[in-house]
């Protein structure tokens, strides 16, 4: 049953995702792209991009979009419910402990170990995004010289814009227009 599988896969993401929406991306990618091949890396990056631009929490947006692409509206609902169910149980459990005993050292310890792990996973996801942007391939190609000029240019420009604190929506909208113009120029040549 694809719906149960989606629920279960996203429940795992919900359990292991510590540190907000960005932290869920490598986990969703690992399940949806690498393990089950439901989506290509390119489609996944599109989901990430669109999730950034639309209102609502990024993780929920990504779960909905991925579920929808994989198995329609019911897929979207299964993925989203799967994503939030562990949070619901864990948060209420911890909130009860907190109201009763205050701060909890053991949980702090686990989280202290997870935070650096999340940093590493986001870096690893970033590497595969870079590969896609520069070479249009999911993994590093044999021939590294086969670079996409549009990718290099747009990545450099947007990276500068992001580091200069230009807002997310502006960066993405600008990058979309830039990509379109460069693509048209390339086809004219």
């Amino acid at each position: 049953m694809i719906y149960l599988l989606l629920f279960w896969e996203f429940a795992k993401v919900g359990i292991f995702c510590v540190g907000g929406g960005y932290a869920s991306m490598p986990l969703i990618q690992s399940s949806v792209v690498d393990t089950y091949h439901w989506l290509s890396l390119s489609e996944f990056v599109d989901i990430f991009t669109i999730s950034q631009m639309t209102p609502g929490p990024i993780g929920i947006n990504a779960a909905t979009f991925a579920g929808m692409k994989i198995a329609g509206v019911l897929g979207a609902i299964s993925a989203t419910l799967g994503f939030v169910t562990p949070s619901f149980i864990i948060c209420i459990f911890v909130a009860r402990l907190y109201f009763k005993y205050g701060d909890i050292g053991i949980i702090r310890g686990i989280l202290n170990g997870l935070r650096p792990a999340v940093v590493a996973l986001i870096c690893a996801a970033g590497m595969s995004f870079i590969t896609l942007a520069l070479w249009n391939e999911e993994t590093l190609p044999e021939d590294l010289s086969n670079l996409d000029p549009i990718g290099i240019l747009m990545l450099l420009i947007t990276l500068i814009a992001v580091r200069c604190k230009v807002g997310v929506i502006r960066v993405l909208a600008g990058a979309g227009i830039g990509g379109l113009i460069l693509g048209l120029v390339k086809t004219q040549m």
Binding site: L155, G176, G183
Partner: peptide, 13 residues
């Protein structure tokens, strides 16, 4: 083309 540009933006983010 537009999505390719936006993918680069997302990568930068």
């Amino acid at each position: 083309y537009a999505l390719k540009g936006m993918q680069c933006g997302a990568t930068a983010l």
